[in-house]
Nucleic acid binder design. Structure first.
Lengths: 246, 246
DNA sequence: TCAAAAGTGTTCAGCATACACCCATGT
DNA sequence: ACATGGGTGTATGCTGAACACTTTTGA
């Protein structure tokens, strides 16, 4: 017999979701107002306890649906990382598995009167300290933002922020909002349309806006998150964000 | 009062460690022979249950030390991701948080007679199915390898596989083993020594080997994992791996 | 006719690649 | 002397950045 082992502890496990979207050219995160202790009344990432027999992704999707009132959440969901279990919840040791959702700007229903109030808040307001959020959620948000930034470089998931069909300018606005930089419209256009396996021309054009009509694109078949690969295809070459020197 | 919530389930949580090293120009992973059920007698990643009051990283380090007999494990440890809890352990729902260790080829002590037998095995043998490992550890290893490959591009952590001081050729061997490609020695030399914030010349030279003596380098101060940042500094420009077309 | 936004062409600099070549040691 | 590996110089092609310019709409 092997030596004796300490009794394995059992932990409550939560899933938290950092749902990001771009609206009005600003990167926003979905936050709820907590209705229960701890941090009652404070803002926090949507999330909750994993139930018996449930997988992490499933739990994340369920919590998100419960707290937004939206049945089928659009967008791309992936695991971000785990935090804890030590010293991050006043109730005791709770392990949380954070997830990242890149979504178009879906309308948040504040569901029933006894449900959480969910709304989109500018990410910058949280990370610059203007808006305080509960637990270690600010750190999780910071990690999520970093992940999202690099996702845009190496995967076609920038399009996950847009609707089904979008113009190159709309896509560029996403990149600019997430990266926090300005991009040259001409070079971005060439790069985005020239990257194989990224965009597909729908043949349709916008109309009614100021200026010349823009072509409408959709995400290429091979790049759809749902179509086979759980890991999205890699953009080759990547769409590179300007790297600060120094 | 908010609506009633289902009682949160509590889960046993394990940490698993994918410890990678390069020896004899081959990428190897540390595996143990399991002495207890389930999968008794099979090979598996080192790991075990997280104890009460313990953090994930701490648990990973502790398990690694226990199962290798090495007190202070050298190298760089980071979290990889979480798996489960559903349907990955015959004992029931167990959540595991996988970690990645990039380490020099430290000698594994098979500790006491009642301890696990740990040893280094070529990664390729596992991923090509010649060697079967327990649980969902093959998938975890595959994810770890992918992470390690990209770590080498964007961070100075290739040096984590080498000892304190190393030659450019030794470093190149690491890159070749992890990426599974051949690199031009001349261009690699220029790129590695030319990347700011990566290498520091010790002034010393090798001696006794065949051919011209090589200069010995160490990881630059700013790039040490322990020195401040938990996230290692980013290489800019990155050391790019050859990208397959198509 | 003008403003505004879409999209194309062109130039330039920097870097990855390939490879010729020289250097310094052991045998 | 010669083999072996370390390290430098240099030509070539690709691509990211900058920006002049044309196109197509609404007002």
């Amino acid at each position: 017999m092997p030596k004796s082992y300490p009794a394995p502890a059992r932990f409550p496990v939560t899933v938290d979701v950092v749902a990001l979207t771009v609206s009005e050219d600003v990167l926003k995160v979905l936050l709820i107002t907590r209705l229960i202790e701890p941090f009652r009344g404070a803002l926090a990432l949507p999330g909750g306890f994993v139930l018996a027999g449930e997988d992490l992704m499933t739990a994340a999707g369920r919590e998100l649906a419960e707290e937004t009132g939206v049945e089928q959440i659009p967008g791309y969901l992936e695991q971000l990382g785990s935090y804890g279990p030590k010293g991050r919840d006043p109730r005791g040791d709770v392990l949380t598995v954070a997830h990242l959702l890149l979504a178009p700007n879906f309308p948040v229903l504040s569901a029933g009167s006894d449900a959480e109030h969910a709304a989109w808040y500018p990410v910058s307001q949280v990370l610059e300290g203007e808006l305080k959020i509960a637990f270690d959620h600010e750190r999780i948000l910071a990690d999520a933002l970093e992940r999202a930034k690099s996702k845009l470089e190496y995967s076609p998931l920038g399009a996950a922020f847009c609707g089904e069909e979008f113009t190159i300018a709309q896509l560029r606005a996403v990149y600019e909002a997430v990266w926090g930089t300005r991009l040259d419209p001409r070079n971005f256009h060439r790069k985005a349309t020239g990257t194989p396996g990224f965009l597909e021309d729908t043949g349709k054009m916008t109309t009614g806006d100021a200026g010349r009509p823009a072509a409408l694109f959709r995400l290429a078949q091979v790049a759809r998150p749902s179509a086979g690969q759980p890991t999205p295809t890699v953009l080759n070459p990547p769409l590179m964000r300007p790297r600060g020197d120094a």
